[in-house]
């Protein structure tokens, strides 16, 4: 075991590749182009979705619009899937990513995050009859999540005695709950209302809070000017309440105190 681990490490250590040509600072480029390219995944309602006229909508989309307006440039939304949000950023196909990216240390090694601009209240939910008050109550039970979300990593790390069942997106998760493939599930608080509206008979409710995840705007490494501008923009808009208002419109709840606090640091 140990030898193999060593070999793997040795084989991959320090392999670098000179890739992108040297660039001027991205913030000046954006201003010069009079256009900012923001990548967002439109399948993570209510952060990114389409409205009934098939226009991009959701809290991340609205925040992107506000940001572009304040920067005085045009907004170009780059359609992305969940797994290509970061590659789009790294290869310069998008300038920034606003797409419910939760800030974690491992991820921060690969991309830079702005200070938190929003958050995600993560909960365990289930039908009325089922009793679950803490992670311990999930022991031996099947818990559904959307794959690669923060709830997924959180439960995988903490609820080791539960069977975690992962679905590809929120709609599939919702279908799994509706069709009875799973009862308990980890999700963003705002999702419960959406799923309930489609399946009133399941009478879903939040059982307990897992954690509040702070969401950051993703920027390619090595763009200090852009990052600094984003940080001050986020703080200003947390202070003046505009970000909070957008969150409330789409999620039905206020931003968490720790997010708002970031605006005053």
């Amino acid at each position: 075991m140990k030898t193999l681990k060593f070999l793997v490490l040795a084989a991959v250590a320090g392999w670098t590749l000179q890739a992108m040509p040297a660039q001027a600072d991205l913030l000046s480029d954006i201003k010069a182009a009079k256009k900012i390219r923001i990548s967002t995944d439109l399948t993570i309602s209510p952060y990114g979705k389409v409205d009934d006229k098939m226009q991009p909508s959701g809290s991340d989309v609205e925040i992107g619009k506000l940001l572009a307006k304040d920067l005085g440039v045009e907004l170009e939304l780059v359609a992305t899937t969940a797994s290509t949000r970061i590659p789009n950023l790294q290869t310069g196909k998008a300038d920034i990513t606003i797409s419910s990216l939760a800030i974690t240390p491992a991820r921060a090694e690969v991309v830079d995050f702005s200070v938190p601009y929003a958050d995600q209240l993560s909960v365990i939910a289930g039908p009325k009859g089922i009793n679950a008050k803490s992670i311990d109550d999930l022991e031996g039970k099947k818990v559904a999540v959307t794959r690669s979300t923060t709830q997924d990593s959180d439960l995988t790390a903490r609820a080791k005695k539960s069977q975690i069942v992962r679905y590809e997106d929120d709609a599939t998760l919702s279908l799994a709950i509706a069709s009875g493939q799973a009862d308990l599930f980890g999700t963003a608080f705002a999702q419960i209302a959406t799923i309930n509206a489609k399946n009133p008979s399941r009478e879903l409710e939040a059982k307990f809070t897992l954690q509040t995840f702070l969401l950051g705007i993703g920027v390619r490494k090595g763009e200090p000017e852009l990052l600094a501008w984003l940080n001050s923009w986020v703080k200003e808009n947390l202070r003046n309440g505009k970000l909070g208002a957008i969150h409330k419109t789409f999620h039905g709840i206020d931003l968490a105190p720790e997010t708002v606090k970031a605006g005053f640091n």
Binding site: T43, S45, K49, V78, T81, T84, D169, S174, L175, T194
Partner: peptide
């Protein structure tokens, strides 16, 4: 769809995740 094309399947996914009627 991985490189940004909203073709038939991806369009289905987008609509699905906004309407939740898979």
């Amino acid at each position: 769809s991985v490189i940004g094309f909203v073709e038939l399947t991806r369009a289905g996914q987008i609509v699905n995740n906004s309407t939740f009627q898979p």
